[in-house]
Nucleic acid binder design. Structure first.
Lengths: 146, 146
DNA sequence: CTTAGTGCAAAGGCTTTGCAGCAAT
DNA sequence: ATTGCTGCAAAGCCTTTGCACTAAG
């Protein structure tokens, strides 16, 4: 595996900002590293619990907020009323399955840049477009009636 | 004003589906007609309360769910954990202010169709792209430090 | 009449907050 | 010693649900 580039980087930023590198934070960072499943806080908590049984859900939330402030994670509401966390902080798009809610990253390179219409440019500054491709994923399409 | 095209249309669809046209539902429909502010359920409730003081928030939620089923309104999580309702049910995009969370409709015609990358097309069927143009609106840009 | 819809209140998710105890300078 | 972090529990939003009452067709 790629081995800790993300972890190293986030740890460095924590230290630079004067924040502490606690075992709980390390566990959450490790859970996020290379994780493109866009987990919710609760999913992260469940996953981290396996290696760190005593970590509390509140600490996971606190840690995620801290990590978001140092740009180590990005949160978003893509589907439903729950927040999803993504360690990929570069601008990119998302494909979301209408049925199973699976979320996949879609990088701008694969589809070319998304133009910002003049009407939007005239009314908003520093516009970053983010596309949501809502569709039906292969798994769900094959079990179409289930 | 345009005068009731939306209302007429929704009332017709309610009847066709065998649903009742109650004063509460009419009040919610009137509140949605031509409303492009993407209100939350609570905002709709507050607005409707002015003309219909006894309507309950639960009824507003129930009504919105009913209206969404007959495709008279579309709900979405664009920003934060609250649901926003939009009487515009044709596919379109949204511009959202990073600061004040104001939401504006952006119609595909103004920016041309959004292409679906081959990678997405290969993994998802019936893909509908929806763009979120996140930026800073003119009002917020002028009060940049407030 | 009959059935669906309303309003109230309670319950349910998810997230945030307050605070005592603990850990790391 | 001082500061910040953790974990627990409670509180807070927003939304959904159960149920008796009411009203639409």
């Amino acid at each position: 595996m790629a081995g800790g580039r993300y972890l190293e980087d986030v740890v460095r930023r924590l230290k630079e900002t004067g924040l502490k590198v606690t075992p709980q934070r390390l566990a959450v960072i490790r859970c996020l590293e290379g994780n493109s499943s866009h987990p919710s806080a609760e999913q992260i908590h469940r996953a981290v619990t396996r290696s760190f049984p005593t970590i509390s859900l509140a600490t996971v939330y606190n840690t995620l907020e801290t990590l978001e402030r140092i740009d180590a994670v990005r949160s978003m509401y893509l589907t439903g009323g729950r927040r999803h966390y993504d360690p990929e902080t570069r601008p990119h798009h998302h494909a979301v399955c209408r049925r199973c809610q699976r979320i996949e990253d879609v990088f701008p390179e694969t589809g070319g840049p998304v133009p910002v219409p003049a009407t939007v440019r005239g009314r908003f500054a520093e516009v970053t477009p983010m596309v949501l491709y809502r569709g039906t994923c292969a798994d769900c399409a094959s079990f179409s009636s289930s």
